[in-house]
Amino acid sequence: MLTLDINGKKQPINSEPDTPLLWVLRDELALTGTKYGCGIAMCGACTVHMDGEPVRACAIPIEVLGNKKIVTIEHQKKDGLLSLVQEKWLEHDVAQCGYCQSGQIMSATALLNENPNPSDQQIEAAMSGNICRCGTYQRVRNAIRAASDTITENASL
């Protein structure tokens, strides 16, 4: 039996070692905020953080994870960057069907963690792996810019 570090908790896992992280999160741990979209790391709906890096959970078998820290959309930490991004997402009314939004938010959060003041090109590069069929992209950009502005303002206080 494997143990995974999910949202700050050590979790014993019953799934087979070759199971992609996506299905372990969804089916064994009931963390269904992480979505299946393509199964081949082409759409970003299953984006989670692995030691802070955005990764596609559909393409990572759990046997390779070891002690890496996995963070999903369900990880609610008050005053954290994820909360700020979620707040900006609501302010900009980004979501439509909402299915891709967990992945979008996890990619955006990883970007801002790495680079609190990204250029438009850097936003596009970081978000290019996240497909949204509802076309929320303009609001995704605006919400990321707004989050970036808040971080920059707070830093200069």
């Binding site: 969804r26 992480t34 299946y36 959309i73 369900e74 609610q76 997402w89 609501l90 909402g98």
Partner: peptide
């Protein structure tokens, strides 16, 4: 007016068909 169910769509709690258990 902002989307009514948006809060559930930013924290992963929205239940889609694929999430039924």
């Amino acid at each position: 007016s902002r989307r009514h169910e948006a809060p559930s769509k930013v924290d992963g709690s929205a239940v889609f068909g694929i999430d039924i258990k």
